[in-house]
Design a protein around this nucleic acid. Structure first.
Lengths: 213, 213
DNA sequence: CCTACCGATCGGTAGG
DNA sequence: CCTACCGATCGGTAGG
């Protein structure tokens, strides 16, 4: 790939175009329901032409999962890593995470929410990679909570694993409530729950950080 | 239905036997992945023989959903309605709910968790019935919270909708963490989160109720 | 990247 | 409740 072409926006490779459509389809019907024929029609090429890019359905699914992970990195993790460690970074990453899920609400919702329950009972490479990504994300949050504690933003009684559990719970519930029962304020409820949990465990310094945002 | 046959365990109609197997299969592969041919083999009858009981795949899916709802009623709602209204009943229903999900953990997890994300993007009769059941369940919890407030078990500042959101969140997260990332103490974490939320909003009377359980 | 095809399986039907 | 079958679609391949 020639560098001058590579980085120009709007000038994406066929593979990237396919994966972009695949991610959008998977939000709505899952990664297993994703059919090569239907995907090919959507992209505007032949089934065999599309298939040649991946070699198997499982490789297509893995590539789609990777594409979604990459978007998540760009939109949630990378921006937060420019913010100060501890509670500021934690607060920002959770806020961006909720915002990303909310913005995907009309398109079928958060990709990872859509495929989690689909693969928890299907052993294989896709499940394995999904589990790994999920664990890494939980660890990221938990490490940042521990750091916020060390820096005196959260009180010493804070249990990082329990707080991670609760924070992640609100995100899950926001997706469920918004996508299934159509609760309009689901993401606002999640933001309120997160803030209230942070506030209850914040030191004076931590409260000042939260108040400033 | 004659009473002497009806209530004998082990004496179930073919339809009930089929639906029992269907619920177990749907926990693992979902209601859409449920195939009539595979289900028939599992039950030990011919595809057409099984099909005749339902007339269409959608009717089979709806009947499976109803069967799961009926189990939920028997194991969670009905028992709780024998307990005193307000916080005691609320506490018991949530405890039984978590216990039921935990007991299903090795079998593919909570039926409703497994099919929620599958149908939030698939319009139709199944989604409609799932949405209705979910709303009724949320309303049940919210009403009981409101009642616990009226009876002086929870403080006046309690927001029933927000508390319902958070309680339901812990259940969702317990399922996700246990089934996908294999977190062993996920259901214990959910119980702790629920208890801690109740305790923070309990009056002196409410705290006494919680301490007694 | 394409057309044309493979066997397997899908939901569903005919006829008994 | 069965066997036998329908057209459509599935993932995947051959050959160019």
């Amino acid at each position: 790939m020639s560098p001058k072409v590579k980085s120009e926006p709007g000038n994406v490779s066929p593979r990237e175009r396919i994966l972009g459509v695949a991610v959008e389809m998977a939000r709505q019907i899952g990664l297993e329901g994703l059919s090569i024929g239907v995907l090919a029609k959507e992209v505007g090429m032949s089934k065999a032409g599309l298939f040649a890019h991946f070699g198997s359905k499982e490789e297509l699914q893995l590539a789609t999962l990777e594409a979604a992970q990459s978007v998540f990195m760009q939109r949630v993790i990378i921006p937060a890593e420019k913010t100060e460690r501890g509670l500021p970074r934690l607060h920002q990453v959770i806020t961006d995470w909720i915002a990303m899920a909310e913005s995907a609400c009309d398109k079928g919702g958060c990709f990872f929410y859509s495929v989690s329950a689909e693969f928890d009972g299907r052993p294989g490479a896709i499940r394995d990679r999904l589990v790994l990504a999920s664990k890494q994300w939980l660890d990221w949050i938990q490490r940042q909570i521990a750091l916020a504690k060390e820096r005196g933003h959260l009180i010493a009684e804070t249990d990082p694993e329990q707080l991670t559990f609760e924070i992640h719970a609100y995100e899950q519930q926001a997706n469920w409530a918004a996508l299934l029962v159509g609760q309009k304020d689901a993401y606002a409820r999640a933001r309120e729950a997160v803030r209230s949990r942070f506030y209850a465990l914040a030191t004076e310094q931590g409260k000042a950080i939260l108040d400033a945002r």
